[in-house]
Design a protein around this nucleic acid. Structure first.
Lengths: 363, 363
DNA sequence: CTGAAAGCGCTTACAG
DNA sequence: CTGAAAGCGCTTACAG
């Protein structure tokens, strides 16, 4: 509602003549819930807007007294700086871009959810907002829009794929700071990662120690770099325990039931007694597939997986899996980016450890 | 890289003296990849920036010839308007806020993912970006930040809960346009919803027609309005088929395994021959719970669910469930909001139908 | 159809 | 420690 404005509503205002100084003085456009500008504060307090700005930002010398006066006013009238104005003056939006891959499956979502939560919370703590984009290697126009229209100060790429280099290259060329979650493609690019290789090595090692003799590995999309890291970890375990790799069988790109069933066929013919799945989605397809063939888990076949998706916690049998600190991963990605942006980040990084959770499927 | 600037890098620029007109004339700060402003275009083309602005926006009269000249230049130099500057001048950010609930469980994620995709794609089509917030009824400070710092033009609340009225009330008072996904709390607030009541009525009806005599309903969080809608649909089906409600048994707030097990106890004692779950998460816990007791599905107990989460597609038994057009829901939410913002939305809304997918669990 | 000018609400070198 | 002034890159009523 406008006081004295004659029923003029917000949405229509742009059709009116431009608001003029005298209108403000006369209170013609004063709303009940006035939105203060730095000018209003300066006027009311009898100081210059330079001073107000300094009090708020804390940059430059300012007397304690003046600063407190400004703070009191701000507090009382719930003043907040106008984002776009600040962004224009500082060439800084206080926005972070978060890029999701277009092709992630529903099962990856808990990963992205956790990651997003970590990023969001951390960004908020530093007064940044996060704007999203969805992109894949063929089309990252959404991300390009964010950089070209100067809507963000930096970006977080939430999954690195083998073919992602075009986008990373682009960002580097545009001098847009970015960090990638997972191994980075572009030389010198910042990245955060949880220890996929080490974790997979540990999990594989445990399976081997449990006496599994013929272990199969069901991998996901080979273009996802995480797949490669885990493969390395798998091989590491064989090396450490001096077991020849011939006693393993490896599959990739297991992304649907058909692929799973085909792999199972071979795995059974080969005589495996254990299967390691690179993610919970594969594990869930696998369980269905094995049950169909009346193969008992863990009696006939041991099973282990990654991610430790809470959705599969209640299935029977429960699946031994590797648990990551995904939220911490997001937090660290954000902290890393904030540092690139010149923020004074003093808080400690989250520790990105992993732990193997043993359940029925490997009993 | 800067031409003639002496190895000065972008990040350090703010420590340098302010860039002056003569620097630009002398090319002192010209980067290889110059970022053009509307002023540059005007100068190069020998027109005023007013004209350039008009050519770009298409507002006001402008000669075809001039417009084409401007377009050509823009195209060639890949000019994009500076977002913050435009936002400041127009009091319009071209950002939409998307509010996620803080408490959604992993199983809800496919829902939010689909919804988000729909929103993102639609927003992009209208040149809007989407910035996220995470909020619950107790704390919506993140959303408040978005409105108070004028970072968004409108908001989409991605789930309506019973206690959500505080936030909706706040938005209304601040005159921030918003639309809620699901039934709206605040009178007169815009909302989009898929037909939960109708869908649940249909699914329930099918179960009853299949000869299930004692049907139990396992509901989710009662504070989520979707729970209420589905309950109504459930009751509708009984009414339609003139079956007394005594032949049903209803539970709410089934959010963990303990609650599920407790409900199952009662359900079995009661002698149910069918169970309808309000979401896939409940269904997955239920399957585990029933298998533990060696109760066969569908022989001993029929089962049906909602959402049709692809993650559960490969489990055995496969579960009969209701499939929604969640992405369309997001699209429509976005279209509705864009209309509230005065955008000229001509495209048609997605149709939000639902369909029952029959699977093994009700055979 | 086009342009000069004022304005959006901030920040920041510069000069007291 | 404080302020006047210029600037960030757009838009838009107004006057040709």
């Amino acid at each position: 509602m406008l006081a004295g404005g004659g029923g003029v509503c917000y949405a229509k205002r742009k059709r009116l003549r431009r608001r003029r100084p005298e209108d403000v003085r006369w209170g013609r456009f004063m709303e009940k819930d006035k939105v203060y500008t730095i000018n209003d504060i300066a006027r009311e307090l009898g100081v210059s807007k330079t001073t107000v700005s300094r009090a708020i930002s804390g940059k430059g010398r300012i007397s304690r007294e003046t600063q407190e006066k400004v703070f009191a006013f701000i507090e009382q009238h719930d003043y907040r700086p106008n984002g776009p104005a600040r962004a224009l003056a500082q060439s800084k939006t206080y926005n972070l871009g978060l890029v999701f891959p277009a092709d992630y499956s529903a099962v990856d979502f808990p990963f992205f959810k956790e990651c997003m939560n970590g990023i969001y919370e951390t960004a908020s703590r530093y007064e940044y907002d996060v704007v999203i984009a969805i992109a894949d290697d063929q089309d990252f126009s959404g991300s390009r829009h964010l950089v070209e229209n100067r809507k963000v100060d930096g970006m977080i790429l939430s999954r690195s794929t083998v073919g992602n280099s075009a986008m990373q290259h682009y960002l580097k060329e545009k001098q847009m700071p970015f960090v990638v979650v997972g191994p980075a493609e572009e030389a010198g690019a910042a990245s955060v990662d949880n220890q996929n290789r080490e974790g997979c090595c540990e999990l594989t090692g445990i399976l081997l120690l449990k006496g599994i003799r013929r272990l199969a590995l069901l991998g996901g999309n080979r273009r996802h770099l995480v797949t490669e890291s885990r493969l390395q970890g798998f091989k590491d375990a064989y090396r450490v325990q001096k077991i020849p790799e011939e006693e393993s069988m490896i599959f990739f790109d297991i992304e649907n039931y058909t692929a799973t069933a085909a792999a199972v066929e071979q795995i059974l013919a080969w005589g495996a007694d254990g299967i390691l799945c690179m993610d919970d989605f594969i594990a869930s397809m696998l369980i269905g597939c094995l049950q169909e063939r009346n193969i008992r888990i863990p009696e006939d076949m041991k099973l282990a997986s990654f991610y430790d998706n809470p959705q599969f916690e209640f299935l029977s049998p429960t699946v031994t899996s590797l648990h990551y600190n995904t939220k911490g991963l997001g937090e660290n990605a954000c902290l890393t980016l904030l540092r690139l942006l010149g923020e004074d980040v003093t808080e400690e990084e989250a520790v990105l450890n992993y732990q193997v959770i043993l359940r029925e499927s490997t009993k």
